[in-house]
Each structure stands twice: as structure tokens, then as C-alpha cells.
């Protein structure tokens, strides 16, 4: 994918997001008409914002369509893309497990261990696993003392 395509996709997503925002706003605040004074109800300002967003996104789309510079037509390269995807998925799994099962500190220990092991795989599995487990144990222990004991925040 080129920067040009990503720019266009983002502009379209923002326009759709803006429309969803306006639809939800005007639907949930349909009674707002009763509260408006001088025509300035709770949807007045947000509707101006939506219109502005759409106009600005259309301008971006137009500029982007006209911009045929090498930088804009260059293919996007993302180094370590799979690490980013893996991190994102692991964080989703962590939050889901924490929300459904609890055991924050155990989940945190596993998350840090797995992330560090994956990130340091170039050093070999045994090495990266040991370093990850030790680092994770120290970090989780520190978090437990700080949040669980000193600040008495329970997760």
C-alpha cells in the first residue's frame, strides 16, 4: 500500500467516523430542541464540528489525489510489523483474561515474559526465556509492592 492510498483511506474513515458521531449525537439528543435557546442547543456546536471535519477531510482527499510526488506514491514499509501485530494481540489477550478471570499479577507476569521472549528471540529461546522470566518476576514484584502494598490499589 502507498502513502497516498493510506491517506485516502484515513480521510474516508474520518468522514465515516464524523457521520457516525453526528448521527448518534442527533439521535440521542433529539429532545435537545426543547432545551435550545436562541437556536443554540446541545447539538449546535458538535454539528458545526462535523461539518468542518467533513470539509477538511474532503480537502485532504483532493490534495492527496493531486499529490503525485515520489514521497506520496512510495510504498509504505513498516519494520517489525509482525512484532507490532503480536504485541497488539497479546495485549488484547491480557486485558480479556484480566477482565474475565482476574489474577492481574499473574497475567502481567505472563504478558511481560511472553513479550520479552518474542522480542529477544534473536538471542535464542532459552536465553530470551530466562531473561524474560527474571525481568518479569522483578517487575511484577515491584508492581505488587508499589500498587498492592504501598498504594493499596487492588486490581
Amino acid at each position: 500500500m502507498t502513502w497516498r492510498s493510506l491517506n485516502s483511506i484515513m480521510s474516508v474513515i474520518l468522514i465515516i467516523g464524523g457521520l457516525c458521531y453526528a448521527l448518534n449525537l442527533n439521535h440521542s439528543a433529539s429532545q435537545a430542541i426543547y432545551f435550545s435557546s436562541g437556536g443554540v442547543g446541545p447539538t449546535y456546536f458538535p454539528n458545526i464540528l462535523t461539518a468542518l471535519l467533513i470539509v477538511l477531510c474532503v480537502v485532504t482527499l483532493y490534495n492527496n489525489f493531486r499529490d503525485k510526488s515520489p514521497e506520496n506514491t512510495e510504498t509504505i514499509t513498516t519494520h517489525n510489523l509482525w512484532y507490532i501485530v503480536a504485541t497488539f494481540l497479546l495485549v488484547i489477550a491480557f486485558v480479556a483474561s484480566w477482565q474475565l478471570l482476574g489474577y492481574f499479577y499473574l497475567n502481567a507476569f505472563i504478558l511481560i515474559t511472553v513479550l520479552l521472549t518474542i522480542y529477544r528471540m534473536d538471542f535464542g529461546l532459552p536465553n530470551s526465556l530466562i531473561v524474560a522470566a527474571v525481568t518479569s518476576a522483578f517487575t511484577t514484584g515491584f508492581l505488587y509492592v508499589l500498587f498492592g502494598k504501598i498504594l493499596t490499589i487492588s486490581f
Binding site: 440521542s28 435537545a32 446541545p42
Partner: peptide
């Protein structure tokens, strides 16, 4: 909305 108490874009 603090002025009218109406929900805005809360989905």
C-alpha cells in the same frame, strides 16, 4: 451536556 443534561455521542 453540562448545560442541558442531554447525552451526546455516547453510543
Amino acid at each position: 451536556d453540562t448545560l442541558t443534561g442531554v447525552n451526546r455521542a455516547t453510543f
